[in-house]
Amino acid sequence: MNVLICIDDTDNLESRGTGELATIMAKEIERRSWGRCDFVTRHQLLIHPDVPYTSHNSSMCFAADLDLANLDAVIAYASDFLRDESAVGSDPGLCVSVIDQLADPEAIIAYGRLAKREVLNKKMAYDLAAQLDMHLSEHGGTGQGVVGALAGIGLRLSGNDGRMKGWLRIETKNGLASVGDIMAQAPLGGVRTMAGELLAATEMVEVDNKPKAVLLDGQIYLMVSPIDNGGAVHWRTTPRSQLKKF
């Protein structure tokens, strides 16, 4: 069964990031043979004076393919892990949702989008999680992280929000690779222009040394921007500074 796992508000200015904790959790789930885990995505939430956050406000989400019999064990492990590994002063929250059994996906997607625009609170989060039969729990501090953990599930489920944690490892020749070669090296939906067009497999791309990918239409895409220098290569991977909107 397909499950989304999201955590939020686990760090402080000195600690490991929430993304690293999500990565550790995903690896441990695989090590214990509970299931297979997918990439981690980062989801930006509202920046507002009434929202408590350390330095940014983002949650980290990953998908897992689990046997139903392992679900309780995964939730127990993730809960203990957050309790033990979250930073002093943080307010960690955990959300786990069985996507195959979700009665009203649009409701959680709408909540996720709302969390990018409005100040939400724990009661709203717990009420919606209960209504949709999703696991939502807090593991220290004020537990405020449940708001973002629930939102991250909705945003990941929307398929149109967030950047992949880390970067793609793409081998190139003199910094260039064809779209076909890029696709052969990374599990991408495609190589896509910022205007939304997919590039053909034969198109050549100038590849940055740490190219980031984003979640669009339910898949991970490497984004490219036009090069206007009169040369034979017309595309380069979109710089990080232009991916902020994802």
């Binding site: 350390t54 940014h56 983002s58 950047r163 944690k165 880390g166 970067w167 500074s241």
Partner: peptide
């Protein structure tokens, strides 16, 4: 941490742990 970087150059206040958006 890398996932919170938004600038292309590593050494940017936008990529600093001590900036609060």
């Amino acid at each position: 941490v890398e996932e919170e970087w938004v600038a292309d150059e590593e050494r940017s206040c936008y990529n600093c742990r001590l900036r609060r958006w």
